[in-house]
Write a protein that binds this DNA or RNA. Sequence first.
DNA 1: CTGTTAGCGCATTCAG
DNA 2: CTGAATGCGCTAACAG
Lengths: 335, 335
Amino acid sequence: MPNMTIKDIARISGCSVSTISRVINDRPDVRPETKEHVLKVMRDAGFVPNTNARQLKIQQSRSLAFVVKGTRNIFFSDFLVQLQRAATLYGYNGIVSYLDENANEIDAAEKILREIKPKGMIFLGGSVSNFQKGFASISVPSVLATLVSDKLNFPNLSMVGVDDRAASYQAVSYLIQQGHSKIAVLGGPVTSYPSMMRREGAQQAMRDAGIQFNDNLYGLSNYDFESAYHAMNSLLARRAEFTALFAMSDVIAFGAIRALVSAGFRVPEDVSVIGFDGITMSRYCVPVMTTIVQPSEQIALQSIELLVRQIEHGAPAQTITLQPELQRGESVRAI
Amino acid sequence: MPNMTIKDIARISGCSVSTISRVINDRPDVRPETKEHVLKVMRDAGFVPNTNARQLKIQQSRSLAFVVKGTRNIFFSDFLVQLQRAATLYGYNGIVSYLDENANEIDAAEKILREIKPKGMIFLGGSVSNFQKGFASISVPSVLATLVSDKLNFPNLSMVGVDDRAASYQAVSYLIQQGHSKIAVLGGPVTSYPSMMRREGAQQAMRDAGIQFNDNLYGLSNYDFESAYHAMNSLLARRAEFTALFAMSDVIAFGAIRALVSAGFRVPEDVSVIGFDGITMSRYCVPVMTTIVQPSEQIALQSIELLVRQIEHGAPAQTITLQPELQRGESVRAI
DNA sequence: CTGTTAGCGCATTCAG
DNA sequence: CTGAATGCGCTAACAG
């Protein structure tokens, strides 16, 4: 009898279906003995409630949707594992949905919402303008992870991440402290909010140090190895002169370093490189990457906690800004 | 009107619910014009069928469970994305479940089976002995991806992967061809089937070349950076002498290289390194990794195809062995 | 505390 | 080709 229903359990235990339902849902209004008895019958029969029927009835699931934009970004892969773990901790199961870099995450979210009716959503990556335009239409508790923006103000959208501008200010300041003044920057397009913030932070750091930011030293790259590799090659092709590079992610840094080395430069002897994210690889590569480490485990945990509070207690959305940390590796050299 | 039902569509389109249902399920017995009309109404209304109701009715889901053992293995992260993509291609949605390295994947699978009733499962990583002991109890179509073993013979368990023994034979033979004879090996424990096969292949290659395999040159490592780093340090601590290293995964190779470099060795000048897997990073690191590339996209695609055939047409389980490819990078030097 | 009953949204006979 | 009616398994009033 592999597929029992609560009816069968009701029959066997001599109770009614509603009592069984109450036991399943751990309602208080069941006599302890009855509950015990029903529980035993259920165990003996190997009964498992039908999730579909349950969810059809209550119109929602116990799942969270993780919407990931940017599948080639290793930082996100790492982060997803943490999210899953945290979700499980709170009794939810996470369903991952990968999106193309140029997909619209709001449209995708709406589709997911209708299809699987998650109780909450967590967005990894995403464009602020897409959110501004469309997020109003989605009403489930949500969290935008690894991104904090003051331009987004929705009652059901929390944000958890580091202050990208401050973090990249720190990164570039570090390069400047080490004596660099010709600093190239590699990162995402202006339509990417974190990229924009990181760029602003970088420029601010230069300005504050009296260094003129040169647009010629800015290379456009997506958050993947290949794109970064090509971006650096373009920089080199136009004879950009720099002694240091700020890459807006470790993955970008790796791709860039590969291009630099292929072109005959040494890191850090000829070019110093500082990354961003602090993926595991950054600690095991040669040279060890100097990078801004995002506290990904904390971000994941806090994201889930916030989401669960929003879901279960109707808590208001919050913005949490966590502190990144500078990992002093070997990829930056003082000059 | 965020939550439409087929009833609404029926009303708007002037048809009955059954016609709508037929259109949704792409049944042939609907007049083309009617179908077109209904389709238009559905699009205009942004209607999405309720998955729960549908699945409750047809008593099965359209989801596949991906059971991943080993969250720190970047190769699996890459691979999962491919699996998701392939699943979507076939109209299924994949649900990922991450397991601890020392969890029992069969127990986990049984739980997943009861909870979400997937139509099929794909296992990433897993111990052959666990399968031998417990897989008989699970009856849904399954695929063991990236692992091929002749010790597993279940009517509902397909396997897709490379011939680990042959592949590592190739890897070590390559080192030997390059003049190496003192070859260290870093890899998983004997309880890991791929590790065992890769070890056997490596030893065979050495035997065939008349090289004595020295147990002192074998280091035990899990498939993560840190473990590999420590394993290499142990090898160095016991003054193992070698000019080349066969690492059973790229991640292991990276961890080992980091340890080597820290100890003052250069790669490949002092020690040549060959890896396994061919993760994206292997092409963008310095030096570019010489490695055995698993055709992960193919493995993912074939795994899903096989699974879908088993599910939809009751096709028998199959074993598919794919050819890996040697990526000649810069981490191996002839001596 | 417990039982009866009416749907949740959809697929599917069975009649037209 | 199309429509009306039934029930999948479960929860939640409502009525004892």
